[in-house]
């Protein structure tokens, strides 16, 4: 967030510096015994708190209209408090009224600006809340997350796939899919017990989440079948990813008699999620048949 506000920070530094220079030029320093330390403490704390507000605004808000209002309001406050603090150390000649105006005028203006910004912020938050509530309802409604693997389930996959297909068609970019299936998982369950099978599914889903990109949507389709959607990825790239995944998973799971995986990459060219998933099933069945045939030959 800091980087978005470089110019603002530069401006504020310049403003405060100019205030300091003006004060030093017009007035003269007080002697040490004339300082009222209680005033210094009070005004210093106010200044620090106002500076803290500036820092919080900069670090937490993106650039935008509401942020500008909030920032400049606080900046005016900071400016006014800064001069307020300076006059504890510097005495101004009586005939120059400029410094006392500069000290007292920006504060109320800053307050008004800040309040206007806060109203804007309130509206913004209400809109966000409304949107979030809508989304949360959707999540609760469908209970989309598979409790075992913490991946999304089939309902979510169908919805997202349909949306992505439409999006990619309008942008004319390519969408790919990885289908992953465990060979003879029921046999593994039978040999090692269902607890081991469930633990393996959990581990596998973690590995998948780590190995794929953030933008990829990984879902547990059903039982021991997983589907990963790869947005903006062409088929050759998806095939490279599948190969990479095969190697990584083989290394990570080779320590005991864990089952082997079939991973198949395919491009999504259908215009409907249902047919796309059907073709994924078909491709996977073909890949499985091919591997069993190879095993029989050897």
């Amino acid at each position: 967030m800091w980087r978005q506000h470089r110019y603002k920070m530069l401006l504020s530094a310049l403003l405060l510096l100019s205030g300091l220079l003006l004060a030093v030029n017009t007035g003269e320093a007080k002697a040490g015994n004339q300082f009222d330390w209680l005033d210094v403490l009070g005004e210093g704390t106010t200044l620090l708190v106002a500076c803290g507000w500036l820092g919080l605004i900069i670090s937490s808000r993106p650039t935008g209209r509401v942020t500008e209002w909030l920032y400049y309001g606080s900046l005016l406050l900071v400016y006014s408090y800064f001069l307020d603090l300076l006059d504890e150390f510097i005495r101004y000649p009586d005939h120059i009224r400029l410094m006392s105006w500069l000290e007292s005028l920006p504060a109320p203006v800053g307050m008004l600006v800040l309040t206007y910004g806060l109203v804007g912020w309130h509206r913004e938050q209400r809109a966000i809340n409304r949107q979030l509530r809508g989304r949360e309802l959707y999540l609760r409604d469908h209970q989309l997350i598979d409790p075992l693997t913490q991946l999304y389930g089939m309902e979510y996959l169908k919805a997202v796939l349909q949306r992505e297909i439409e999006l990619h068609q309008s942008q004319q970019s390519s969408l790919s899919m990885l289908v992953l299936d465990i060979n003879n998982f029921s046999g593994f369950n039978r040999r090692c017990g269902m607890a081991a099978g469930d633990a393996y599914l959990g581990r596998l889903s973690e590995l998948l989440t780590n190995q794929l990109r953030h933008s990829d949507v990984i879902c547990r389709y059903a039982g021991d079948r997983f589907i990963a959607l790869l947005p903006a990825t062409a088929l050759p790239q998806a095939q490279i990813m599948a190969q990479h995944l095969r190697q990584q998973l083989a290394q990570l799971t080779s320590h005991n008699d864990e089952p082997e995986l079939t991973i198949q990459a395919l491009a999504v060219q259908q215009s409907c999620a249902k047919t796309a998933l059907q073709s994924a099933d078909k491709a996977l069945a073909q890949a499985k048949a091919a591997t069993t045939l190879e095993l029989q030959r050897t």
């Binding site: 409790p147 369950n189 017990g193 269902m194 059903a222 039982g223």
Partner: peptide, 17 residues
């Protein structure tokens, strides 16, 4: 407690084994 439609299917399998 668990929103998992596979539960009865897995239970049958688990009982058998």
């Amino acid at each position: 407690q668990v929103s998992s439609p596979e539960l009865p299917f897995l239970l049958g399998d688990a009982l058998l084994n």
